[in-house]
């Protein structure tokens, strides 16, 4: 017993040191790409910490969203930034000062959090017992899903809405002429044969894993956000490999898919006022099926929103097929002007 505990302590200490070292390296490294790669590795190590803390739901979210999806977004942002060599010396000094300020602020925040954790009374106040006690009324086996979809459903509803708002914000960055067109950030000029093979082999497995994560979320770690993130990643691979084009952002069906999750969640929540005398309340016998319907619709909407966030704002397209240039430009300009007339 004590042997395995001390072994665990050694592993945890090593993990903590590794994360601290990697965090310092990520801040100190000069290249933007290297910093992003460091950030992705950092996120995966943090996911391991969550596993060690027995919070597998959080670990899955951290690995899929915090590390994978954020990493891809940051890589794209890094690609838009000027190369280090192009930044004038005065700008570099400013960036170093900015890094020092950010580092000091983050270290201060960490110190405050550490102080708070160390001052917690023993045992720490917890709602876990109360949450576990009422869980059977929801028909769920995973208390995390119970908190997300039943006890604190309003938070999850707002999160799902925020994703759509974020997408609207991203789309508003499109150039006027490109509005209504296809997102272009994940287009690759010449995807290699290996990438195309990966995009053919991986999505069947990944789609299965994504749906499994949503389905198993009722009783085991998983849920709409983790499953949706995996589905979005599969979509991104297909887009990067050029096997399919991103959908036009003015498509009616695409927008329906984007809002069906939050809208259904909201509608069932409203109906709860009559069914269960509370906004976002569920009638006792129908809790589990309603939650599964909400989660299924949320998974679809989250996957679409995350995938489109990765795909970037609509951009001018070079035109389908080998014809690139003036003719293609003209055709989508006409298209967009007819859209404005509608």
């Amino acid at each position: 017993m004590s042997m395995s505990m001390s072994l665990g302590l050694v592993a945890d200490s090593f993990l903590a040191l590794l994360i601290l070292g990697l965090a310092v390296w990520t801040i100190a490294v000069r290249g933007t790409y290297a910093a992003v790669v460091g950030f992705v590795a950092y996120g995966l190590l943090v996911a391991l910490v969550w596993v060690r803390l027995a919070a597998v739901d959080v670990a899955l979210t951290e690995a899929a969203l915090g590390s994978g999806l954020m990493g891809l977004l940051l890589l794209r942002a890094a690609a838009c930034l000027p190369r280090d060599a192009a930044v004038p010396a005065s700008g570099r000094v400013g960036r170093v000062a900015l890094r020092v300020v950010v580092g000091v602020l983050c270290a201060g925040l960490t110190a405050v959090l550490a102080a708070v954790v160390l001052q917690l009374p023993e045992p720490a106040p917890s709602l876990a017992a109360a949450a576990a006690q009422v869980l059977p009324t929801t028909g769920l086996g995973n208390p995390v899903t119970g908190v997300l979809i039943a006890y604190r459903a309003i938070d999850t509803l707002l999160e799902a809405v925020v994703l759509v708002l974020a997408l609207i914000g991203l789309w508003s960055l499109a150039a006027d002429g490109a509005w209504g067109g296809r997102p272009g950030a994940l287009r690759t000029r010449e995807p290699g044969a290996a990438l195309v093979l990966l995009a053919q082999l991986l999505p069947p497995v990944g789609i299965l894993v994504g749906i499994h994560l949503f389905w198993t979320g009722a009783n085991h770690p998983g849920g709409a956000f983790q499953g949706g993130a995996v589905l979005a990643a599969m979509w991104a691979i297909v887009l990067v490999a050029g096997l399919a084009a991103a959908p036009r952002v003015d498509g009616r069906r695409l927008r329906l898919v984007l809002v069906v999750g939050p809208a259904l969640f909201f509608a069932i929540g409203l109906a709860g006022i009559w069914w269960a005398d509370a906004f976002l309340g569920y009638p006792a016998d129908w809790a589990k099926p309603l939650i599964l319907v909400i989660e299924a619709a949320l998974t679809l909407s989250i996957a679409a929103a995350l995938g489109l966030l990765l795909a970037g704002p609509p951009a001018a397209e070079p035109g389908p097929g080998p014809v690139v240039g003036a003719a293609g430009q003209l055709s989508w300009k006409e298209q967009s002007s007819t859209d404005e007339h509608r």
């Binding site: 290699g192 044969a193 290996a194 990438l195 093979l197 990966l198 082999l201 991986l202 497995v205």
Partner: peptide
């Protein structure tokens, strides 16, 4: 075994992409 096969697929692809 599926984890190992997926790691093989990912590793081989990343190797090809980085190599090219």
């Amino acid at each position: 075994i599926a984890v190992w096969l997926l790691a093989l697929l990912a590793g081989a692809t990343v190797g090809q992409v980085l190599g090219s």
